[in-house]
Amino acid sequence: MSDTSNDPLCLVFIPALVTVLYAAEKHKGASLTENEVNDIRDKSTCMAVPFSVALEQEKKRGYADIIAENCWEEWQSARMKLSESS
Rank of each mutant, 00 (worst) to 15 (best):
M1D: 10
M1F: 02
D3R: 06
D3G: 03
D3H: 08
T4I: 02
T4R: 08
N6R: 11
D7W: 07
C10Q: 08
C10K: 08
L11C: 01
F13R: 00
I14M: 12
I14S: 10
A16N: 05
L17G: 01
L17R: 01
L17E: 02
V18E: 04
T19D: 14
T19C: 04
V20Q: 14
V20Y: 06
L21F: 08
A24H: 09
E25L: 03
E25Q: 15
K26I: 08
K26L: 09
K28E: 08
K28T: 02
K28L: 13
G29F: 02
A30L: 03
S31N: 10
L32T: 06
E34S: 15
E34F: 01
N35E: 15
E36D: 06
N38C: 09
D39C: 10
R41D: 01
R41F: 08
D42E: 07
D42L: 02
D42I: 00
K43T: 06
S44H: 09
S44Q: 04
S44G: 05
C46L: 03
C46D: 06
M47V: 13
M47L: 15
M47C: 09
V49L: 14
V49K: 09
V49A: 07
F51L: 09
A54L: 04
L55K: 12
L55S: 12
E56D: 15
Q57D: 06
E58N: 10
E58I: 04
E58S: 14
E58Y: 05
K59N: 10
K59D: 05
K60R: 14
R61H: 06
R61G: 00
G62V: 00
G62H: 01
Y63R: 14
D65A: 06
I66F: 08
I66Q: 09
I66G: 08
I67S: 09
A68G: 12
E69D: 11
E69K: 15
N70H: 11
C71L: 02
C71F: 07
C71Y: 10
W72D: 03
E74Q: 15
E74N: 12
E74Y: 12
Q76H: 10
S77L: 11
A78K: 11
R79L: 09
M80A: 09
M80I: 15
E84A: 14
E84Q: 11
S85L: 13
S86Q: 13
